[in-house]
């Protein structure tokens, strides 16, 4: 019986730290948002304290987007959830943690900033990769994370499909053929976007890495610009990273006010500037104008425009037996 106090000691300690600050928020996020929230959280804490006098501690949890959403369903007490595709938040709505119309509660369908899918090629672009069609040439090795386990991989897949569809004379059949040929050129399907980057940069496997624009910038920061060039395709997909308040949790904890302020400030000039500094494309026109130089204009499409909705895209393409599975089953 001596074990019990010991067992709960850490929980008490946790409660103890919470008592110092007035409010503790838990932001459950996906893998690559660390850098952004590391910069954004202190900014919010200052602004919120100046405005209300309350001190807020923001805790972060990071992991694969869908895995994180499942954890929240399983009881991880997230005040806010910041994901990389809408279906991960829809899941919470299905389970009654937040209302189905969550996307309409904040501006821009609750998407504070976007990114686009771009190519990283070896320095000097030895394989002369300019656009999507170059990725399916024989002999070109493409590094893409596994669309089954990675949002990054899913965006790449959908981008490839959507751009093939929008070519002159494009059709579903042609898009399918294009995507099949693309994945035939993929030698390694890593489980996540960061693992794919490591395969490309550290292991020197492949000729081109398809990833998000902000990730390309992270790679440059961490590994230097000497090893690769960024190539912008003519048409790309808009990667939208939605955020939402988890009603059930904030109402239980009584943190709705702080959590709401936390999310709304993402759209402020300061929040948008932090986003731009992290190479996320801001929604705010002024901030976008100020940082226009670092975001070359690229024609993009939204997932919902081409595939109806994220849910439909998931069901048709990535569910078991979906198009992605069929591509591999054909062999």
């Amino acid at each position: 019986m001596k074990l019990r106090p010991l067992l709960f000691a850490p929980l008490l300690a946790l409660a103890g730290t919470a008592a110092h600050a007035d409010v503790t928020l838990l932001n459950v996020s996906y893998d690559v948002m660390r850098d952004f929230y590391k910069d954004y959280n202190p900014l919010f804490q200052q602004a919120y304290q100046a405005k209300t006098g309350e001190r807020v501690t923001v805790q972060q949890s990071h992991g694969g987007s869908s895995k994180q959403a499942l954890s929240v369903v399983g009881g991880l007490a997230a005040d806010v959830i910041t994901m990389n595709q809408a279906t991960d938040i829809d899941l919470l709505a299905d389970k009654g943690l937040l209302p189905a119309n969550w996307a309409r509660r904040l501006p821009n369908d609750s998407v504070p900033f976007n990114s686009i899918t771009v190519f990283l090629v070896r320095k000097g672009n030895p394989k002369a990769i300019r656009d999507w069609n170059d990725l399916v040439r024989p002999g070109v090795q493409v590094i893409v994370p596994n669309p089954k386990t990675s949002g990054n991989g899913r965006y790449t897949y959908l981008a490839a499909w959507g751009q093939a569809l929008r070519q002159p004379g494009g059709s579903e059949a042609k898009a399918r053929d294009f995507v099949s040929r693309l994945f035939r050129n993929v030698p390694v399907l890593d489980s996540g976007g960061r693992a794919a980057t490591t395969t490309f940069i550290q292991r020197q496997v492949g000729d081109v890495l398809v990833t998000f624009e902000n990730e390309a910038e992270m790679v440059a920061r961490e590994f230097g610009r000497g090893g690769f060039d960024v190539v912008y395709p003519k048409l790309s997909v808009l990667a939208e990273n939605p955020v939402a308040l988890v009603d059930k949790v904030v109402d239980k904890k009584g943190t709705r006010q702080a959590a709401d302020a936390y999310l709304r400030q993402l759209w402020s000039v300061e929040g948008q500037t932090v986003a731009a500094q992290n190479y996320l494309r801001p929604q705010h026109p002024q901030v976008a104008a100020r940082y226009a130089a670092q975001f070359p204009p690229v024609k993009t499409f939204r997932v919902a425009e081409v595939f109806g909705s994220w849910r439909a895209a998931m069901k048709t393409h990535f569910a078991d037996g979906g198009v992605f599975d069929q591509i591999y089953a054909k062999k």
Partner: peptide, 14 residues
Amino acid sequence: LIIISKLDQYDYLG
């Protein structure tokens, strides 16, 4: 990995 990817599709049962 199959198990993990099924979980990523929220396919608990699978």
